[in-house]
């Protein structure tokens, strides 16, 4: 064999955009205030509040922020890049334009100068993590108060003596 490409799970792409020199937002581990604001609107567009809370209230960005220091740490540069691109894209329209932009990204039709592949990669990455943060165990930082489980009608069953393992610390 001549050539081999090592892609350990997900290759880190260089070029962290915004965030350099800024500290993490209060209460977060790595993402800055600007980044959290954009991510929060992004996640909320993916799972919006109606009569029941959406991704923002459920603290999905907190789940993603925590994992970006742990299991997803190699994805941090990609997140930074995607959030910076989204921020630029939204500059004129504001967060109200988020859902329409996500529809374009899902089809790979976002401006190429912002997303080299038309946005599909970033869209899929954030969607997967948003579903995890909304429907997964609260111990990882999202799904506050099991809000999605209550929504689905499968309230968490407390197991005597195991509350700590069930909920962890938020």
């Amino acid at each position: 064999m001549k050539r081999r490409s090592f892609i350990a799970g997900t290759a880190a792409v260089g070029g962290a955009g915004c965030g350099r020199g800024e500290g993490p937002a209060p209460g977060y581990r790595v993402l800055t205030e600007n980044e959290i604001r954009t991510l929060d609107a992004w996640c909320e567009a993916l799972i919006p509040a109606d009569d029941a809370p959406g991704a923002s209230w459920a603290k999905v960005p907190r789940y993603i922020d925590i994992q970006l220091t742990r299991k997803f740490r190699r994805l941090l540069p990609r997140y930074r890049e995607a959030l910076a691109a989204m921020e630029r894209w939204l500059a004129a329209a504001g967060v109200e334009g988020m859902a329409a932009r996500l529809e374009l990204m899902e089809q790979g039709k976002a401006p190429r100068e912002l997303f080299a592949d038309g946005g599909k990669d970033a869209f899929e990455m954030v969607l997967a993590h948003t579903l995890q943060g909304f429907y997964g165990s609260p111990r990882h930082g999202g799904n506050r108060d099991y809000v999605s489980w209550v929504l689905l009608g499968v309230a968490p069953v407390p197991v005597r003596g195991r509350e700590q393992a069930e909920t962890g610390k938020n």
């Binding site: 567009a45 799972i47 689905l152």
Partner: peptide, 15 residues
């Protein structure tokens, strides 16, 4: 896969 359509579908049909 996302948005209001996803949420409405999932809350109605999970069970």
């Amino acid at each position: 896969r996302w948005g209001k359509g996803h949420k409405d579908y999932f809350r109605t049909n999970y069970r």
